[in-house]
Design a protein around this nucleic acid. Sequence first.
RNA 1: UGGGGUGUAGCCAAGCGGUAAGGCAACGGGUUUUGAUCCCGUGAUACGCAGGUUCGAAUCCUGCCACCCCAGCCA
Length: 567
Amino acid sequence: MEQERAPGPDFIRRIVIDDVAAGKHGGRVQTRFPPEPNGYLHIGHAKAICINFGIAADFDGECYLRFDDTNPLREDVEYVEAIERDVRWLGFDWDDRLAHASDYFPQLHEFAIELIRQGLAYVDHQSAEAIRTSRGTLTEAGTNSPYRDRPIDENLEFFAAMTRGEFEEGECVLRAKIDMASPNVNLRDPVLYRIRKVAHQRTGDRWCIYPMYDFAHTLSDAVEGTTHSLCSLEFEDHRPLYDWFLEHLPVPHTPQQIEFSRFNLMFTVMSKRRLKQLVDDGHVEGWDDPRMPTLAAFRRRGYTPESIRDFMGRIGVTKKDNVIELGLLENCIREDLNEHAPRRLAVLKPLRLVIENWPEDAEEWLEAANHPNRPELGTRKVPFSREILIERDDFMEDPPRKFFRLKPGGEVRLRYAYIIKCESVVKDENGVVIEIRCSYDPATRSGSGGDPGRKVKGTVHWVSARHAVAAKVRLYDRLFMAPYPGSGTDLGAELNPNSLETLDAAMLEPSLAVTAPGERFQFERQGYFYVDGDGAGDARPVFNRTVTLRDSWAKIERQAMAGQSGR
RNA sequence: UGGGGUGUAGCCAAGCGGUAAGGCAACGGGUUUUGAUCCCGUGAUACGCAGGUUCGAAUCCUGCCACCCCAGCCA
């Protein structure tokens, strides 16, 4: 059944299928998700996680979580903890396959020496500046370093001295000797090792030289036994270098690098630099602010890991540049929550409504379904009384056509209760409606079946004023106004000023008085809400809106608006 | 004007020489005590463009165009 929607194998899986069939790598499949612990994981990483762990699972293989921790300057344990938490939350398990590039430092060092012995690497004493200028440009070949042809013994000696810490940072580096005239800039004698006299979060002061990405990553794959090294498109022209290392060193395995396009989301920035900027500039409250695209933020927003995995399955895996519409992601979480979230009544922006013909102190507990399409989820009771609260948006004194909510003289059904009629309105001195006076029809109680011919167009949610529970509710909208933000210089100018609306006077049905962080509900007619764990210190529960319900009335309003302004 | 990639509907994406899957969005209709859900229906004479090969091409060949990535002692 689920199978029907399952897309055919993507191009990577197709390659893996062929490899397994051909008995390549002994029929084994091993992948890895290799984050650098220098920031939080965002939803773009989720694609790589799903691909790597997903393919391993599909082929009964294994996937490592390997930290590419080769630059102690920017890395921190705070990030490794956050990354582990997020990968686990997404639903993946690496068992004992947790690794770090730093675990391989000793072997990597041996490989470097081996390259020197073969005359394929040399210690370059040029300055960083000199190395850059001699690299040439995209259209002009580079020039050889004056140190390029020094004897192997000398290189061995200098590299040993580098390792011992006898040179200062920047004094020299170890470079591969490949081809300074290569049209592929990555092959113009890339730096293999640089000196960094800083402690590493795992190896401490053991090393003062650290390997560069290409060298460390390739050989970590090879040592670990990776069969398919899956990465994003920007590493495509690093592949010749990747293969060069494998060709020239006595590696135990020869993994194959395959590149896919990273995923982009409309109205979202994904680069670590820009995300950090949002945090540092105070545009959001932190890396896990629910408006951020980090996994930690999606978690606090109320997204389920299932919905994100579903989403990743739907966007596919190709080499094509892509920018996904927000609608698809929202569809995924709505689909999940529609199925699983229990329904509740909650009034976000309350307006007092008095039922004049309801006895002063009487109350009635009405039965309400927890899920309209899943009776097995049971029912609960909600109290009804003379004074109730309805949504401000559900009343209009002078409504447009097709508004079938409450209006003067109009009738509407109160969800799970009675049909009421608006008899009059009460306004304050400024003319603002502050109370609606209604009458109710006792014959119309929900479920009573009385007078089946009696129908009203609209149904409205409500809460008994006397029984209601106050709550704090956060309404989120997209962080950016610009569909493709980040292209300009001023990120702040592209922000949506209304990305967060905090409501302090939301009123909930009493069954919501006790909730646990992490619980999800649908507030009927409004959206899905998540109980945030940051409510500490506040007696009231705090709800974050995950996503609204689809709203065809809003669409009609928008079209009407467009029709008015657009001649 | 070096090298590496990519171009199928608004957004994704199948297709791999035999006459354009699917999802999301959009639009129309039905059910409905959530204007929700659910259900039904509608979209490319056409696959970046131009030639060519072939009985037959989105799929093969040639040329062109557009877009993305690369010159960190970052990953």
